[in-house]
Amino acid sequence: MKHKTTEPLPRLRAHELSSVRGGRTLFEHVSFEVHAGELWQITGANGAGKSTLLRMLAGLMPSSSGRIEFNNQPIQYDRSVYHQQLLFIGHKPAVKAELTALENVYWQRRLSGDKTAQQDSSSDWDLLETIGLLGLEDEVTGRLSAGQQRRVALTRLWHSQAPLWILDEPFTALDVKGIAMLQQRFQTHLGQGGSIVMTSHQALSLASLNPKQRHLGETYANAMGAQS
C-alpha cells in the first residue's frame, strides 16, 4: 500500500486511453480518475468518441492503447469482479418489446443476479410506481412510447447494487419529470458513495450534481491542452 491515507484510491482510473479505428484516431491521451461520490460527464461533439470511451470503460471494447484500472487493478485482470461492481446502460435499452414493463423488470432483476426476484413481486410494483409507469404495467413494452421504454430500461438504476455506473445518454427521450426523477436518483447514489461516468448533451440537467468534466476534443490538439 503505497498510497497516502489523505488521498483515497480512485475507484476507476483511465490512463492514456486512445481509440484508433480504421486508421482514424478518435481520441488519444485520455486520462482521468473517478473517485467515490463523483459524477464524471464526458463531453464532446457528435462522433468525438464518447460512446466508444464508455464502452471501453465498461470492458466491452479493447482500447487501442492505455489502460483502465478498477480499484487499482486492470479491468481485464478479473472481469467477473469488475462486472459485479458495474452497471452499464448503453444506447440500446436491453428491454424486450414482447414483454410487459413488469416482466421486463422481473427479468432484469433475475439476470442481474437478484435472488429475491419474483414474478409480480410487490417490490417490482413499487419500482414501477417510482419511475411513473404504474397503470401501464400490463402493456407490452413495444407499445410504450420511447420515453416510457427508456424508463423501463432505467429501472436498473433502482435495483442495482453496483457502486459504479456507466451511462450513455440516460436522459434521452425523458420528459422534465423523468429527468428530475433521474437527477434525484443520481444524488442518492453519489451520496451513498457511488460513482457515475456518463455522457449527456443536457449540461443543465447535471449542473446541480456538480459534475467533473472530461472533454473529448478534435483529436490531439485539444486533448493535449486539456492534459496540462
Partner: peptide, 14 residues
C-alpha cells in the same frame, strides 16, 4: 438489436 447481448457480456459469470 435491443442490447440484451451486451448486458450478457457484462455479467460476472463466464
Amino acid at each position: 438489436a435491443d442490447g440484451s447481448l451486451e448486458q450478457l457480456c457484462l455479467l460476472p459469470q463466464p
